[in-house]
């Protein structure tokens, strides 16, 4: 056991952090996982079911929890990594609360924040009761009831794609990748829960980039009768009967379109997490124009930072889905081990 005494700190206990910690522990490294919340799990904790097969999120959560259940791993919760610095052969990590931890390497897995929908004021989030985010809809799925604010059932639901993504007006030019397929998945779930409810997706482009995504899109049309309208929603308002009115152009018909809906779901995108951004500034880690952490090389150094002994895993580097996040975390472990062995 060559690495038995080597210690790696993993900053962030989401999907990437849990997978990285599990892999390293399995290889015999001593791992400390620092999680800002009360429990590891990250955004996955709020998710009910996953695309493309709508399997329960609990299955993946279970897998990851089991990964953490290893004697080499110690988990520190309700704690944030504030600063990382290199010192001799060691990496020193400053934790919230003023303590310092020493490690041989650090994996940064601080993840993403969901876009704050208040910033897209014209969609009325926080102003109109029945404008919700995709995450809030997922919570409704978990509770087993999709309903309007007054408790009644919606007869028409609209999904607005690209909220906070691909939008210069909120300083996010990047695509968050997963929202398109999430919308398709959620649209199907709404239809399954409320068979009488009409569902519309307002999209700019349907980016079905992963395996079985396009098939899910096809199924949504073939089986679930989801309607797709190509156009960016410009604004929403409420009418006298307190229904939301969406303004959009049906770009394929070439004419402006107005539609009343009962519930409007905003497909909020992924942004660099505030905590990760603070860590980057404090530690001098480079960030890109999209504000995510900049990796050593976009093709073959995608887990490598420009600080010795510091590696990146998951959505702190770019938006990605769970599958890719787990692969990325494993790759980060490979890079970390290679570094530790070569030292």
């Amino acid at each position: 056991m060559k690495g038995a005494s080597k210690h790696v700190i993993v900053a962030g206990g989401g999907v990437a952090g849990m997978e990285a910690a599990g892999s390293l522990a399995e290889m015999g490294y001593r791992v400390t996982l620092i999680e800002k919340g009360q429990d590891p799990g990250g955004h996955l904790l709020q998710w009910h079911a996953l695309f493309p097969d709508r399997r329960p999120a609990e299955e993946v959560r279970g897998y990851l929890r089991k990964r953490l259940n290893h004697e080499n791993i110690s988990v520190i919760t309700s704690t944030v990594v504030e600063k990382i610095r290199h010192h001799g052969h060691d990496v020193i990590v400053n934790l919230s609360g003023g303590t310092e931890e020493r490690a041989d390497a650090v994996i940064v897995a601080t993840g993403f924040d969901l876009f704050d929908a208040h910033r897209k004021e014209e969609y009325g989030y926080g102003i109109y009761d029945n404008v919700i985010t995709a995450a809030e809809l997922e919570e409704m799925f978990s509770m087993g009831k999709v309903a309007k604010a007054d408790g009644t059932l919606p007869s028409r639901v609209g999904f607005v794609h690209c909220v906070g993504s691909r939008d210069e007006k909120v300083s996010n030019n990047h695509c968050s990748k997963v929202c398109c397929v999430t919308a398709v998945k959620q649209a199907i779930e709404v239809r399954k829960m409320l068979p009488a409810c009409e569902v519309f997706c307002f999209y700019m482009d349907m980016r079905m980039y992963g395996p079985y995504y396009e098939e899910l899109y096809r199924e949504s049309q073939e089986v679930h009768n989801i309607n797709y309208i190509r156009g960016k929603v410009s604004e929403a308002s409420v009418n006298i009967s307190n229904r939301l009115v969406i303004k959009v152009e049906d770009t394929l018909a070439g004419r402006p379109l107005k539609m009343e809906v009962d519930l409007m779901v905003l497909m909020v995108g992924m942004e660099m997490s505030k905590q990760g951004a603070g860590l980057a500034v404090a530690s001098g880690l480079e960030t890109g124009v999209n504000r995510f952490l900049e990796t050593g090389d976009h093709h073959y150094g995608n887990n490598v930072s420009r600080m010795k002994g510091v590696f990146y895993a998951g959505t702190c580097t770019a938006p990605m889905n769970i599958t890719d996040t787990i692969s990325h975390a494993r790759a980060a472990v490979t890079e970390t081990v290679r570094y530790l062995n070569g030292r």
Binding site: K232, S234, K247, V248, P256
Partner: peptide
């Protein structure tokens, strides 16, 4: 070609 302009347009 997202159509945001034509959606919000008063003249349109």
């Amino acid at each position: 070609a997202c159509g945001g302009c034509s959606a919000t347009c008063t003249a349109g």
